[in-house]
Design a protein around this nucleic acid. Sequence first.
DNA 1: TTATAATTGTTGATCAGTCCACCAATTAAA
DNA 2: TTTAATTGGTGGACTGATCAACAATTATAA
Lengths: 159, 159
Amino acid sequence: MSSTTQDNETIDFGILNELIGYRLRRAQLVFFNNFAVACNDLGISPGLFGVLVIVARNPGLTQTAIAQALGNDRSAMVAAVDKLEKMDLVERRPSQKDRRSYALYLTEHGESYYQVIEARVQQHEADFYGLLKEGEKEWLIDILSRLTESRSDAPACEE
Amino acid sequence: MSSTTQDNETIDFGILNELIGYRLRRAQLVFFNNFAVACNDLGISPGLFGVLVIVARNPGLTQTAIAQALGNDRSAMVAAVDKLEKMDLVERRPSQKDRRSYALYLTEHGESYYQVIEARVQQHEADFYGLLKEGEKEWLIDILSRLTESRSDAPACEE
DNA sequence: TTATAATTGTTGATCAGTCCACCAATTAAA
DNA sequence: TTTAATTGGTGGACTGATCAACAATTATAA
């Protein structure tokens, strides 16, 4: 009911501040901006990073398999993999089992560059750790996972 | 028979599942979809609902004031208010203090219709309450607020 | 006062992301 | 063999966000 800072010029946010959906959107936007600032020189967006992680940890997957894992459309993968290929981070190798599909792998340059990117991303995340108390990060991720995997065609999540 | 679908279960998400940013994005997407399903017949998007709430609780504000409160660009408000005007929910009244700006108010129809919309939104939010334990909702909102208002883009802060 | 700077709503352009329908080639199933 | 699915891919539509510019208006400084 009360906003965090009740200053002179009080705008009443009403129900908005108590809506998980609204708060999620605002927080996600802040993370997005921070990610962009931290990784713009690397040419990596959050979406591209997601693809990179899946390819790095699961070499040989097809584009549709990655799309399903990330909850994206197959068609969206084309431009993403094209970009990553032009950056010499990912390469498409013709699948031997299925001549329709490609098997995706990190290039040699991609292998080493991925270490840089992941370190940068983790550093970007750490920018927010000061705002969290003991155990809050794990709890937050747990509850977000619950909210995500409850409904919808949740992606295949392990662990 | 087992090539693609079984791969799904063994996909390693690596660092992804432990990233707050990634989890936020996924959860927010689920909320967005649920919101759309719950409110598509009302013609209200999350963004439009945000504007509606601010106008309802703070009648007479200018478009830029609302944009700043919601963290949006001023130019984005034009199309939003145009839509809400065509729906006969919001009206622009010329400001008496400043002839450059408008003062925004809910129309008569908007006043009653807003009750319907807010009830629907709250019902949509309640779809997720079953996943939360005692006090977790307040905790989650508190954490998300902290993450959001840490950075410069904080809403509702005038000087 | 006058000259200058700032603000308001608005337009337009760009850009990323999502979504959907569709296609040729290939594979799976009937 | 005929038919149905699936793959990567293309194109279009549709949001959203972002930014630069503009005319009208207001605020500030000289």
